[in-house]
Write a protein that binds this DNA or RNA. Structure first.
Lengths: 147, 147
DNA sequence: AGCAATCCCGAGTAAATTCCTCGGAATTGG
DNA sequence: CCAATTCCGAGGAATTTACTCGGGATTGCT
């Protein structure tokens, strides 16, 4: 029940863009450095995000990346689905893979996985990048106060 | 966001015991055959479940396995935790691994993972093996009717 | 007592997946 | 034109997953 670094890095990169890419595009190297992620690895991930329509890129000098839509229109679910594939705890509850159950007992566990999937999707689809941005700003403000 | 075959097999084995092991212990070979799982692999998994106190074993001829407590006292969460380790979408929200966040942005994603974890745990801890057994029986009954 | 059924244990291994690197081509602002 | 930057695909190291195997320890049954 783990999400991989692909998902983690992707979410962090998107958060970085939400926080720092409002005016000008942010080059990959800057995101990678700020988030402490290998640049060449992140490159792969962000290109997936681009093909999924979540970020837009600007090539050439002064280029970089920006969010493709406003942070409140991007859900965490979209990001994770793009990078990690369908949010299904087991293949058998993934739409594309639905091979029928041969046995009632196996079918029952399928109902279990569907229940779990529904709950995960509920959180992931209802949580937006804007919410995450807001959390980050709250934390940053609290840290500032403390000093 | 997948659970592995360890978890799937473990849950199916427990369900098998709940359904077929009420009177006499069920030998490993029978579970493995009925659930279509490699016997030597399942052996490893069930020994983990035994050490976790979820099943009891009887050695020697006529031996086998039974649930260690009633199905309604066993949660799916317990089974999965035994076999797959802590239910934490990322290491950083696992109690034992709590290395502090160095950066507010990373901290914010942590809040996200905690939110997700809470929702997963909620489902897994509130769903018992008895519920699953009941699902299996409902499905079996429906199939019977159909004929 | 002896045998067959069964659990118990640990080492080893093949395959899959994850994480990451690298080299070079294409684009574009200054 | 050049430096900054994205774009792309091949490949490889490390880790995890899924599974096999051999042999020892128990125990009910006859």
């Amino acid at each position: 029940m783990r999400i991989s670094t692909r998902g983690e890095y992707g979410v962090r990169a998107m958060l970085d863009l939400a926080l720092h890419g409002r005016k000008e595009p942010v080059p990959l190297g800057v995101i990678a450095a700020r988030q402490d992620i290998s640049e060449s690895y992140l490159e792969q991930l962000i290109s997936v995000l681009r093909r999924a329509g979540l970020v837009v890129s600007f090539r050439g000098a002064q280029g970089g990346y920006q969010l493709a839509k406003s942070a409140k229109e991007i859900t965490i679910g979209e990001i994770l689905r793009a990078l990690e594939g369908p949010i299904a705890p087991r293949k058998c509850v993934d739409e594309k893979e639905s091979s029928l159950c041969t046995q009632s007992e196996r079918c029952a566990t399928r109902v279990l996985w569907q229940k779990l999937q529904a709950s995960i999707e509920d959180v992931l689809e209802s949580t937006t990048l804007a919410w995450l941005t807001n959390e980050a700003e709250k934390i940053a403000a609290a840290v500032g106060e403390q000093r």
